[in-house]
């Protein structure tokens, strides 16, 4: 009973935080562009509207199961990321999993996307997926290298143990291992589909995103999982670099401050092309990551 309630609470919390954070992002970007912008609930309205629309087109069973696979991947990721430290609640199944499992779960989304869009046969959609997988190739390597740096530093793959090792603010990995944070930050933004690495689903002006063929309910499911996945990744980075959170308000505050940082970076830089993205990721964050590994493994002052 406790497990079910806990899982539902995590899914609900990640959804609510998801649409509020995205609503905030839209309003924030509107103010930067000197306009009023939509209300903070706008993403909730959009999502509900899509979930309540009709769905008349079909491209066979895979077109339907693709979004379901992506959504299942997102929900599983949410359930394997511990939201709170030293608490019985909001843990999900995180005691049975570790960071390596989460790394695997993060790739389920793009794969489901490729399956669904591939079965739709829309050339624009396939173009979008190609771009998405190319970007994935660029961002995964530095992202996982950053995670590996953290695992190497603490010599464990358990998110709980890494959280427990960061007691005070001075022990946060953000300060004890800033290279890992710098390595992970930009791939993290890219994995959130945010500018400047958002060429894949370029929201309004590029017709060729992976979602081009989805409308109605399936698009609603995709939006829902996207918001939940965003929160899961934010909480994961908070757990790994900012010492986790002991209660829900600290969690929201920490996740929000991280979100604010990524949003500010997103709004300051214009969009990069796909090959520029991959070039950038394989030069700057990956180079930094290799330096970080060398420093952690070979030099006494690392770790």
């Amino acid at each position: 009973m406790h497990v079910i309630l806990d899982a539902l609470a995590m899914i609900g919390l990640s959804y609510v935080m998801g649409f509020l954070f995205y609503g905030f992002y839209r309003q924030f970007s509107a103010r930067v562009q000197r306009r009023w912008g939509p209300s903070i609930w706008q993403n909730f309205f959009d999502n509900m509207k899509f979930l309540l629309k009709s769905e008349t087109l079909s491209h066979g069973p895979m077109f339907f199961f693709g979004p379901m696979i992506i959504a299942a991947g997102a929900i599983t990721t949410v359930l394997f990321v511990p939201f709170l430290k030293d608490s019985d609640w909001l843990q999900g199944f995180s005691h049975s999993g570790n960071l390596i499992l989460i790394v695997y779960l993060l790739v389920v989304g793009p794969l489901g996307n490729a399956l669904a869009v591939g079965s739709s046969g829309n050339p624009f959609g396939v173009m979008g997926v190609t771009r998405g997988l190319t970007r994935l190739m660029g961002l995964e390597v530095p992202f996982f290298l950053g995670l590996a740096l953290v695992m190497l530093q603490h010599e464990t793959t358990s998110v709980h143990a890494i959280m427990a090792a960061q007691d005070g603010i001075a022990q946060w990995n953000l300060f004890t291992n800033p290279i890992a944070f710098m390595v992970i930050l930009l791939p993290f933004i890219a994995s959130q589909n945010a500018s400047p690495f958002d060429v894949v689903g370029a929201p309004v002006e590029v017709y060729a995103g992976p979602r081009v063929e989805f409308g109605g309910r399936l698009l609603g499911v995709l939006m829902t999982q996207n918001m939940m996945m965003t929160i899961a990744k934010l909480v994961l980075v908070v757990d790994l670099f900012m010492g986790g959170a002991t209660n829900i308000f600290i969690l929201i505050a920490k996740a929000f401050s991280l979100f604010l940082l990524t949003a500010a970076i997103s709004l300051a830089f214009p969009r990069l092309k796909t090959e520029q993205t991959v070039d950038f990721f394989w030069k700057v964050p990956l180079g930094l990551g290799v330096l970080g590994v060398v420093a952690t493994v070979w030099f006494p002052w690392g770790a």
């Binding site: 087109l57 081009v212 989805f214």
Partner: peptide
């Protein structure tokens, strides 16, 4: 956008 009106990429959406 302040009224929730935003462009859509395709007719499906």
């Amino acid at each position: 956008e302040r009224f929730g009106i935003i462009g859509a990429a395709t007719p499906r959406q």
